[in-house]
């Protein structure tokens, strides 16, 4: 398994290449912004008919991460579904797969702005949850000082000689961490764009996802170098 160990709030975490977060001491796997059913929602509104394979693609990566880490608890950090109307059809098509993944684990669906209501699936449905002193919620709450959230789809760009890398990333400082979007059909917001930049402290660090994970201990320094 491709992963990178790092410390956040005095605990050891693992950033996985896929964009999932594993917390070994609590045996928790966290994924954010799955956006299941995005292609269907776009189609329903009369937009383009995107390849309808993104649920499978996302699920197959999740399947891999779940079998690699075999966690007691899985937290889906909100915006798991692209809107409430797609919940039913996604569940209908992929129920067996989802049920198999959920079997024997505590599965927590956190509410997101796209999926604010209860989902007709197993597991528990929560606005937010606190595990061993860390808050898990969809959108960062500035008053919290110990928090893991999603929502913003952070990414970071680095220019080197032969290419510009632009990868979804984990963003963190000494109070909060923001997870990259896990869903296949998701774009990203640069770490230095509003409102991400004001949310994070100047000491913020990042871990770039992808086949090889890169740890950038100081984004400010990277930014000053013009890269």
């Amino acid at each position: 398994m491709n992963k990178l160990d790092f410390d956040f709030r005095g605990r050891r975490f693992q950033a996985l290449a896929s964009g999932a977060l594993y917390w070994p001491d609590a045996d928790v796997l966290v994924v954010s912004d799955l956006h299941f059913g995005k292609s269907e929602r776009i189609a329903r509104r009369g937009g383009p008919l995107l390849p309808p394979y993104e649920v499978r693609e996302t699920l197959s990566r999740l399947d891999q991460d779940v079998s690699d880490t075999n966690p007691t608890t899985v937290i889906c950090l909100g915006d798991s579904f692209d809107d409430m109307s797609v919940v039913e059809s996604v569940i209908e098509d992929e129920a067996a797969w989802l049920t198999r993944l959920m079997a024997g684990r505590e599965w927590i669906w956190i509410e997101g702005n796209h999926d604010p209501g209860p989902i007709g699936l197993g597991g528990s449905h929560r606005r937010e949850v606190n595990i061993k002193g860390i808050d898990f919620r969809h959108i960062a709450d500035e008053s919290s000082v110990s928090e893991i959230s999603g929502h913003y789809h952070p990414k970071t760009k680095i220019s080197v000689k032969s290419a510009t890398l632009s990868r979804p990333c984990f963003l963190f400082d000494d109070e909060r961490m923001i997870l990259p979007a896990y869903g296949t059909y998701t774009g990203g917001l640069n770490w230095d764009a509003a409102p991400l930049k004001s949310l994070m402290k100047p000491t913020a660090a990042a871990i770039l996802t992808g086949k090889k994970l890169f740890h950038i201990p100081s984004l400010a320094k990277l930014s000053n170098s013009g890269r």
Binding site: L50, Y53, E54, E57, T184, Y185, T186, L189
Partner: peptide, 22 residues
Amino acid sequence: GRQTAFSSDILYDTLLKFDPEH
């Protein structure tokens, strides 16, 4: 809506994997 726009490469990879005759 920068978060909502995603790269066309993702669509290409997805189609190639699931629907190569498209």
